[in-house]
Design a protein around this nucleic acid. Structure first.
Length: 159
DNA sequence: GCCAACGTTGGC
DNA sequence: GCCAACGTTGGC
């Protein structure tokens, strides 16, 4: 079981949207490295931190779990979508997305500033200067540290 | 709104 | 294959 962090702008799609829906397709990713993580490395059951980017303040808002394997991102075929991809064909999609399901809201929202203050997270990809990856791997130690900060019990993953 | 850092595109 | 120009991300 791997650990991940995925970013979303809460004004577009927040942890509350996911909590209300239960599950969603993580569509709209248009970065090859992020796509490759979803296609090559993610598996059902993987744990994912939900990060609110471009927010005031930005930070960890909750937790989700990968509930469906990567599949073609439908928005790439929609000419009216911002994510429209003219190069994509039904038979040769360019972009993929996984399905994720809600696990828990952070018991306490943990801001980027607070994450930066943790020495245990010093090497976290999210905190690297200039880091923009919207889907990134998280080490088990980093995940444990963040779950403690947001006050989510690991038990919540089981079942 | 600003802008640093980064990714992508396209001319050569 | 190089790299300048451009577009995007995302913190501040």
């Amino acid at each position: 079981m791997k650990n991940w962090l995925m970013k979303s702008e809460p004004s577009v799609y927040s942890i509350d949207h996911l909590a209300a829906e239960g599950r969603t397709l993580w569509s709209g990713v248009r970065n090859y490295q992020a796509r490759n993580f979803m296609v090559q490395s993610m598996a059902i059951g993987d744990r994912v931190l939900f990060y609110h980017s471009n927010a005031d303040p930005p930070g960890i808002a909750g937790l989700m779990r990968v509930s469906g394997a990567a599949r073609p991102d439908p928005s790439q075929f929609d000419a009216h979508s911002e994510g429209y991809e003219p190069r994509a064909k039904r038979s040769a999609p360019v972009w993929q997305c996984v399905e994720v399901e809600f696990v828990a809201k952070a018991g306490r929202f943990v801001s980027l500033e607070e994450l930066r203050a943790q020495s245990s997270l010093a090497k976290m990809e999210l905190l690297r200067k200039g880091s923009r990856l919207s889907i990134q791997p998280v080490t088990p130690a980093e995940m444990a540290a963040v779950l403690k900060l947001v006050r989510i019990k690991v038990q919540r993953f089981k079942g």
